[in-house]
Design a protein around this nucleic acid. Structure first.
Lengths: 155, 155
DNA sequence: CTCCTTGCAAAACTTTTGCAGGACC
DNA sequence: GGTCCTGCAAAAGTTTTGCAAGGAG
């Protein structure tokens, strides 16, 4: 998905919203556009609100929250938690078996992405042992990034 | 750790608190005891507060929050997030390579625990590729438990 | 005795909600 | 035109903080 043209992605998102009988409003489009344009991959509601105000200063924070909730429900976004007291969101690339995970630095708080496929082998095991059907999963690693590991050595 | 006598565990926790030059106050002991006694493995601050008031009605909610933060910092507890808007805590059994993960049911919200070791193989890879030193990790699976999967079929 | 810790109350934040007006299809 | 959606403001809920009094070592 990251390789596609932004306008193509927007059309896909638009289609998904309409398929579910929701309206593709200006506000919803602007919010989705923010995710396509942002360099920050993990935006909080407040981050989105600020980006979106540049485009349309009249938009309300409640609308941002309502849209993020809707988009998460429609699986256009994934809701993440990095333990900093607010929820964060990223575009959902619908690639379950090749999804990425997050390396969260305990020193500087930086979040890096990391690819590693392991779901399929575990999925079967969990189904058999627990009778639990996995739809999605989240894997977070906590530790120290290169820079912070270096700083720790100097203490 | 789950197999040890509670009093032995409490002594270990006490020792750890004192090692770090913090005081082992009555309130801190009562809060830790709540974790040892609770049948609920994943307590929110409010859950802890309610358990603890039975023992000492004068304890303040702020004290609970401050203690949970301290214990997490000392790695006596692990802070978890199941996406229900409040943080939850569990005893940290310091068994990184045999740690457990959580199966969160999207139907009924029930959280089940699940053991699966896979850290060691990934740890090296991440160190080499990203220069990132892993200290801890959290793995959550979202899906449908046996009961809810059955209900879904009947729709 | 000296700090660290606590309780209380207030504050700070994030997120949710009610409602009247507006926009989409 | 009917219904869904938005903005505003207020509310709700969780977590944090300031401060004076109290307790542990």
């Amino acid at each position: 998905m990251r390789n596609m043209k932004k306008s193509t992605i927007m059309n896909t998102l638009k289609k998904k919203i309409r398929e579910h009988k929701y309206k593709f409003t200006t506000q919803r489009q602007i919010i989705l556009q923010a995710f396509l344009d942002s360099k920050e991959n993990h935006m909080s509601a407040e981050d989105v609100y600020e980006m979106v105000r540049d485009e349309n200063p009249d938009i309300g924070l409640a609308t941002v929250y309502r849209s993020l909730e809707l988009f998460t429900h429609l699986e256009l976004l994934k809701k993440l938690d990095f333990g900093d007291g607010r929820s964060r969101y990223e575009l959902n690339d619908h690639n379950l078996s090749h999804s990425h995970h997050h390396l969260i630095c305990l020193g500087c708080g930086k979040v890096t992405e990391f690819s590693y496929d392991f779901l399929n082998e575990v999925k079967e095991k969990i189904k058999k042992e627990n009778g639990f059907d996995i739809v999605d999963y989240q894997l977070k690693f906590y530790g120290y990034c290169r820079d912070c590991a270096k700083k720790n050595q100097n203490l």
